[in-house]
Design a protein around this nucleic acid. Structure first.
Length: 287
DNA sequence: ACGTTTTCCTGAGCGC
DNA sequence: TGCGCTCAGGAAAACG
């Protein structure tokens, strides 16, 4: 499934293959794919048709392409199963094709394919005067740790000020964006922290270590993702060899911890799973 | 106001 | 073969 490093690979693919091209036709094949467009699919298509796509941007797991002079953007989120594919128009439609963009040059078309329909696209206004044309609905989304303007000191202060547990905080997009279930577990394993550790119990050095590890694991994944996906953007998918090779905790239930050989455990957590080493990542004492 | 829970969706995998 | 069940999970809405 698409995580921050894969979304960054997608962003690079969009920059390579669709930036600078002019939209000739928009087809919305499933209304749910544009549900964030308040006025519906008709408006989505009308606002996009005839525009020229600008340089691809990303914040966390959100992607956007400024339109024309950058007063609005096409915003996208891949959800769990979304893919943005650049395909030859002759390629048969994918089973879960939701949106198609054709271009005036007649070349490869952009397809949004999404089985579970948690992802979506929308055209919306950009923040006034922003050279990157950040969509207004991203105002509450924090910068991600790969963003050069991410404020490390402010993050550690805000993290320790929260009255919650550490994994909830890592997944909170208003605090830090781009970290999902997989990278949260990986960052916690590297930091030897239990997912239910209260944020208020984190020392400043621990909070800084956690941030450094989250950044490191996502950078490492991005580096591997770059070699797993070949240069053709159309081959981008969520099933590269990265996951089986590089993960230390996520998905490794019953397998030995790479530090201490204790079997990794899986615990039910917020209607999903948390993977952790019961020896390296001790359960916090009940308060 | 803030933190927590629910909800959306579909296909794979599994036991029977 | 097929039925019913569980699981995967980002983020906005609903809830307390």
């Amino acid at each position: 499934m698409p995580e921050l490093p894969e979304v960054e690979v997608v962003r690079r693919g969009l920059a390579r293959w669709v930036t600078g091209r002019t939209v000739a036709e928009v087809q919305v094949l499933h209304p749910r794919a544009v549900r964030r467009q308040a006025a519906g699919a008709g408006e989505f298509a009308a606002l996009l048709t005839g525009t020229t796509l600008g340089s691809a941007q990303r914040r966390g797991k959100y992607l956007w392409l400024p339109l024309d002079e950058g007063e609005s953007s096409m915003l996208g989120h891949l959800g769990m199963s979304g893919q943005l594919l650049v395909q030859d128009p002759a390629t048969p439609d994918e089973t879960h094709l939701r949106v198609r963009l054709r271009f005036t040059d007649g070349g490869r078309e952009l397809r949004f394919v999404d089985q579970r329909t948690f992802g979506g696209l929308a055209v919306e206004q950009a923040e006034a005067g922003d050279p990157e044309a950040t969509p207004v609905s991203l105002a509450h989304i924090a910068r991600d740790p790969l963003d050069p303007r991410f404020d490390d000191a402010a993050f550690t202060v805000a993290l320790r000020a929260r009255r919650t547990t550490v994994k909830r905080a890592l997944l909170d997009q208003t605090l830090i964006s781009g970290v999902g279930n997989i990278y949260a577990d990986e960052a916690l394993w590297r930091s030897k922290l239990h997912y239910d550790r209260p944020t208020e119990s984190l020392t400043r050095p621990l909070a800084a270590t956690l941030l450094a590890n989250a950044r490191e694991v996502m950078n490492a994944a991005l580096a591997v993702g770059g070699t797993s996906f070949d240069s053709l953007y159309v081959n981008v998918n969520g099933e590269s060899g990265y996951f089986s090779r590089s993960l230390d905790a996520y998905g490794r239930e019953g397998e030995p911890c790479y530090r201490c050989a204790t079997p990794i455990r899986r615990a039910a957590w917020m209607n999903r799973s948390s993977y952790y080493c019961p020896r390296c990542q001790r359960v916090p004492r009940p308060r």
